[in-house]
Design a protein around this nucleic acid. Structure first.
Length: 422
RNA sequence: GGAGAGUUGGCAGAGUGGUCGAUUGCGGCAGUCUUGAAAACUGUUGAACCGAGAGGUUCCGGGGGUUCGAAUCCCUCACUCUCCGCCA
């Protein structure tokens, strides 16, 4: 959520920046400013009436104390007109507040300077490439065939027990999955992130804190009986640790990581794009989350990108990094880098990580601030996947396949306990 | 699932209708003393909003009510804890 003070001061800049998302926010901004103006007027009036009331009440108290009953009773009568006025103003103020809030919720974050204008994924900027795309002397198989052949994943069994998008991993497939989680966590911890095991369900307030609510409730699984949401990512519980927190000084850098299953309803599309592990309702992910001083968030983002690069290098996967254009960025993000791994058998790029900075967009909702001298200032938040498992698993299988089996990257072998699947 | 107790400032914990945004202690910050530190002493120390400022308003779990006036009384919802039951 954008700060109202900022909208008051930098309307034109915000408008120009939002245009990069192909959004013409001029009407919304005007409505916001007008509502804000009206709200302030009503609020000032209300404050004045309230001050008068307080003054009267105090005087009446004094009169009663000193036994001047008659005077007190006379004064009481004066309050009734004020009361009516106060009630009306209160209603007006809270109606304006609601209207303002609603408008603010609809505005996405302002893209960073470096973000280019663009419509969709076509306009994303390729900023980095690493590794080489493997050439096979045989016909490369997609991961769903490999998974079946080596009995690593059973999709049908998942359908039987739960439904589509909830696969079973088995045998070496399960072991490989667990090895990846362990590997990612160890790397994150080595990079200074504190590990958390978090709840996998959150309450409504947490959903609002990170921006899943309002509006995106349909994307989360909801437990009606207890009013809980299954987390779509560890970002939600981890970031919400800092909801309603004021850090005591300006000298902080909070680095958290956590493995969780992630649950997504995404009614979404069908067909080739969602085959196998490409899109699931339940998947595993290790997430890294940071809370930083505003001056430090650019550097933090770079560090997170280097961290993810390092993971992909160690897994010996060919990948590229895209800086998302305005139109392809998430609602809350100010700047996002997507990591895509090339899938040899599917002959396409698979998104395996998304690293974003949110600036004050999340912390404004979370009320996450720090104390700087006497002032309280909003922190910056960042997060990224490091990494999401299914597509990593898919690209490991596909890119490291040989005619007889699948080669496990060296860095992983200590975790899997085997060097080849055959 | 049943019964009971509770929710107050960073923490602990007073406060049952009138200068209470709130006693006190701890913690934090500043100072005195000290070569320095500790101890002791003194002062200071919540947040949000409106306002150029002076100043004002709001907040004692959320919402509503009674009253000239509510942390305090009433209603309602939520949450937490304890005991019992069930259970990994």
């Amino acid at each position: 959520m954008l700060e109202i003070q900022r909208i008051r001061q930098e309307k034109e800049a915000i408008l120009a920046a939002l245009a990069k998302r192909n959004i013409d926010a001029s009407q919304t901004l005007d409505a916001i400013l007008e509502t804000d103006q009206n709200w302030r007027m009503a609020k000032t009036q209300l404050d004045q009436v309230a001050a008068e009331m307080n003054q009267l009440a105090r005087s009446i108290g004094e009169l009663f104390k000193s036994g001047q009953q008659a005077e007190a009773t006379a004064m009481k009568e004066k309050t009734s007109a004020l009361k009516i006025q106060e009630a009306a103003l209160k209603e007006q103020v809270s109606a304006l507040e609601d209207a303002l809030q609603k408008h603010l919720y609809t505005l996405p974050n302002v893209p960073n300077e470096a973000v280019v204008q663009g419509r969709d994924a076509e306009d994303n900027q390729n900023v980095f490439e690493a590794g080489s795309i493997p050439q096979f002397s045989f016909e490369a198989q997609p991961h769903w065939d490999l998974a079946k052949k080596f009995k690593l994943i059973d999709f049908e069994l998942g359908v039987k027990v739960t439904g589509a998008g909830f696969p079973f991993y088995r045998g070496k497939g399960a072991r490989l999955q667990r090895a990846l989680i362990q590997f990612f966590l160890d790397e994150a911890i080595a990079a200074g992130y504190e590990e958390f095991i978090s709840p996998h369900m959150v309450n409504e307030a947490s959903g609002y804190g990170t921006g899943q609510l309002p509006d995106k409730e349909g994307q989360m699984y909801y437990v009606q009986e207890d009013d809980f949401y299954l987390i779509p990512t560890a970002e939600v519980p981890l970031t919400n640790i800092y909801r309603d927190v004021i850090l005591p000084d300006a000298n902080f850098s909070i680095k958290m990581c956590g493995y969780t299953p992630c649950f997504r309803r995404e009614a979404g599309s069908y067909g080739k794009d969602v085959r196998g592990l490409n899109r699931l309702h339940q998947f595993d992910k290790v997430e890294i989350v940071r809370v930083e001083h505003p001056d430090n968030s650019a550097k933090a983002l770079d560090e997170m990108i280097d961290h993810v690069k390092n993971l992909l290098d160690k897994l010996e996967l060919p990948y590229r990094i895209l800086r998302l254009c305005g139109g392809d960025m998430g609602f809350a993000s100010a700047m996002t880098y997507d990591f895509e791994v090339y899938s040899a058998a599917q002959e396409k790029w698979l998104e395996v990580s998304s690293v974003s900075r949110f600036d004050t967009f999340q912390s404004n909702r979370l009320k996450l601030r720090f104390k700087d001298d006497k002032k309280t200032t909003l922190c910056h938040t960042l997060n990224g996947s490091a990494l999401a498992l299914p597509r990593i698993l898919a690209s490991l299988l596909e890119n490291h396949q040989t005619e007889n089996g699948i080669q496990i990257p060296k860095a992983l072998q200590a975790y899997t306990g085997f060097s080849v699947i055959e």
